[in-house]
Amino acid sequence: MSWRYVGRRLVQLVVVLLIVTFFSFMLINLLPGDPVDNLCTGVCDQEQEAQIREELNLDEGVVQRYFDWLGGILTGDFGRYYDSGVQVSQVLESALPVSLQLVIYTQIVALVIAIPMGVLTAYRAGTVFDRSSNATAFGFLALPNYVLAFYLISIFALGLAWFPPGGYVYLSDNPIEHFKSMFLPVMALAAGQVAVYMRLLRSDMIQTLQEDYITMAKAKGMPPRRVLFRHALRPSSLTLLTVAGLNVGTLIGGAVIIEVLFELPGMGTQIFLTINNNEYVALQSYIAIIGVAYVLINFSIDFTYSLVDPRIRHG
């Protein structure tokens, strides 16, 4: 593993991170009008305005302000909410775990359903089972997550009252209620993922099942289930795992609607609130965090790939 290569990749990573954070920062500052006015929207007095101006170093140039802000971020100062005065880092502490739980649960559920389905539809490719599963998968693929969410809420929460229609319960408070409150949101998000993963795995499995070593495993007298899951699944799962990993990055930013609909106090809800309440400083931080997370996840996956495939390593 050449250190020069690693060094080069890390430098690329840092550059991208800087650019992404810069863009997040700039987004807010491209606002038409005076930042102070935007933050205050008329409710501040002279003193508060001066205070804000000072805090944000509004006298300095944009680039200088960016580095100030970046410095703050790196030391854990994400700014504050101007309405309530609460520190963003505090809010993050409680909101981030909620969003992470949502993302992780979704991936787990999606994989747990998609993997057996992918294996079975590949095994029985061309049969009625396969075609109907594919059709259903297609349906779920096309189904927007909030559409599904509304259906789920109407039927299971309001109609049957099996689950709460919204709200969040902390795992430490009441595990059962926690999972009940997460169940519908996770289902709404996971449905689309299941479809994508299932098709991906199916496609790779069909190819793998034609390999010689599968015939060889059969010729050894191994039963179908063993051949499928112990011999065929592992070589076929690479693409699936890669996409699943990348999706974690995508989901982090994409679950806003679901969080809002189900009233989950995660980062998505915070973003919604901050945008609607003109809390631009907090918003900046959130966007930056999500962007950075996405870049880091992508980078790790890319990097792992290059470790596995010697050809890319020296490319």
């Binding site: 991208v16 992404v20 863009f23 930013g253 973003i271 966007i287 999500i290 962007g291 996405y294 992508n298």
Partner: peptide
């Protein structure tokens, strides 16, 4: 392109509409 795609898309759109 890649930088634009790194930022959360929906949030980006939200911000633009809100600001403008």
């Amino acid at each position: 392109l890649n930088i634009m795609l790194a930022l959360p898309q929906l949030v980006l759109a939200m911000a633009i509409v809100r600001f403008m």
